[in-house]
Amino acid sequence: MEIVPYVLLSLGAVFCAYKAVRSPRLLASALYLAVVSALVSVMLFLLGATEVAVIELSVGAGLVTVLLVYALSMVGEDTQDPPSYIPKPLAFVLVVVAAGLVGWMTLPMLPLPQATRDLLLVDVLWKQRALDVWIQIALIFSGVLGILGLLTESQTVTEDEIEPEALEPVSAVIAHQEAGWRKAEAASEAEVRS
């Protein structure tokens, strides 16, 4: 009876993952992905990996979904998923072979021993694998810099697109005004001479 919640969560996660792949609308795909992330984080919590579950729920279901919705709001929802070049039966057969190999090679590997919680995540992460923490910090900074660079580049692109169109009418207006002034000057000179 211990495995019943895991089975239910697994069925829900796989179903939502399939819906995320097959959904024609990108917003629905993003929301199904958030549901998959939430279900996986509940499974991680039940497995005892509470810290990873919290990170997965906040980052996977929260931040990534917000980013996807933001990108979709910039791109527009009109981008339908075109049909694939690979025939779907061939893709299905390939995937069944790959997933079957994963299960076939992993399942008979070892029976489930009693998990010994000898080292906590905090100890491992800060003492044994401190390099991982530095890599994570570097990754976060590189991500922030990349986003800043790409967003500022998009602003300059829009300005470049606007400038030539905007300058032409202004120069035309100035030329028109100058022509008017010359006419007025010529008319005043003619009056003075007469």
């Binding site: 796989v14 993952a17 399939y18 990108l26 998923d81 049909p83 995937v95 790959a98 992993t106």
Partner: peptide
């Protein structure tokens, strides 16, 4: 069926669905 088997089958199914989506998808955001 043990808990380990259930979890490995879940991992394999999620991996399969993801690979299938990667093969048939042409949209960058997808």
């Amino acid at each position: 069926m043990t808990l380990f088997n259930v979890l490995i089958v879940t991992v394999a199914c999620l991996l399969g669905v993801g690979l299938y989506g990667l093969l048939i998808t042409r949209n960058l955001i997808k």
